[in-house]
Amino acid sequence: MSTQKTVRQEAGTVEDNELRLETAKAEQVVEALNTDLAATYVLYHQLKKHHWNVEGAEFNDIHVFLGDAAGNAEEAADELAERLQAIGGTPIANGKRLEEHAPVEPEGEDVYDIRTSLENDLDIYGDIIESLRDHVELATNLGDHATAQLLREILVEVEEDAHHIDHYLEDDTLVVGEATN
């Protein structure tokens, strides 16, 4: 464990930034970005859980997709954290705090059939999509066009992954069979 005693910036604070975004505006954007960061990490962990546990006739395709989708979520989280740090904030980085701050609820530790798992993922994607859209508007209204652009780019990727899940959930996919003992 580190013996360093000097705190460079307290968690939850927003300092002046070199990007010249007023602190009062930066505080609002930082709060929004931390919300999206927290939701994205909840999604990331749930996608990884499903990636590890997927079974069935379409195992390989779904396994690969879920791994890619988790990678997209991890990349988005990194971009969100770096942006909020650039505008003077501190990214939430503690697992417990991330889950507490997230506006989405993970499904829990049990393993479900893949259809249920993907439906649960799609619910979280929908909540994140709505949040990102709201935060694009917030950042635009506050004059933080770079954050708005970043959020738009993340939104496109999130919507694309959600659309793929929607396709996996169509009636002619995910063959349901009876378990044999």
Rank of each mutant, 00 (worst) to 15 (best):
D161V: 06
V64G: 07
L118H: 05
I154P: 05
D121Y: 02
I128V: 01
G12L: 06
L43I: 00
I129R: 02
D134I: 03
R152K: 13
E105Y: 10
V158H: 08
V54P: 06
L142T: 05
T13I: 03
G67V: 10
K49A: 03
K49E: 08
R152S: 08
G71F: 13
A39N: 06
L43T: 00
N120W: 09
K96V: 08
I129E: 06
L138F: 09
E178S: 11
H163I: 02
L37P: 01
D171T: 12
G143W: 15
S2I: 06
G67R: 15
K5A: 04
L66R: 10
E22P: 11
Q4N: 10
T173G: 05
D16E: 14
K5T: 11
E27I: 02
V111L: 10
A179P: 12
A24I: 12
R152Q: 12
E75V: 05
G67H: 15
E137M: 05
H164V: 08
E170M: 11
I62V: 13
E170L: 12
E178C: 04
D121N: 11
E160C: 06
D134L: 05
A32L: 03
A139Y: 13
E74K: 15
Q4V: 08
K48V: 02
W52F: 08
V7W: 12
V7A: 04
E99H: 15
R152G: 02
Y44N: 00
L66S: 06
D16R: 14
K49N: 08
G12D: 09
D78S: 07
L155K: 10
G177T: 14
A32N: 07
L47W: 04
A24D: 14
T23V: 04
I129A: 01
D36F: 00
E58S: 12
N34T: 02
V14A: 00
G143T: 09
G95Y: 15
E153S: 10
R97S: 09
E79C: 02
K25M: 03
E10Q: 11
H164N: 07
A39H: 00
A73T: 08
E31M: 03
A39D: 03
E55Q: 14
E130R: 11
T90Q: 08
L84H: 00
G143M: 13
A81D: 01
Y41D: 05
I92A: 02
P106D: 13
T147P: 10
H50D: 12
P91S: 05
A148T: 07
L98N: 04
G95H: 14
H50E: 14
W52G: 01
D36C: 00
L37Q: 01
L21F: 14
T173P: 01
E15V: 06
I114M: 07
E10N: 11
L142V: 06
N53V: 04
T116D: 08
D123G: 03
G108W: 15
V7Y: 15
D127W: 06
T140V: 01
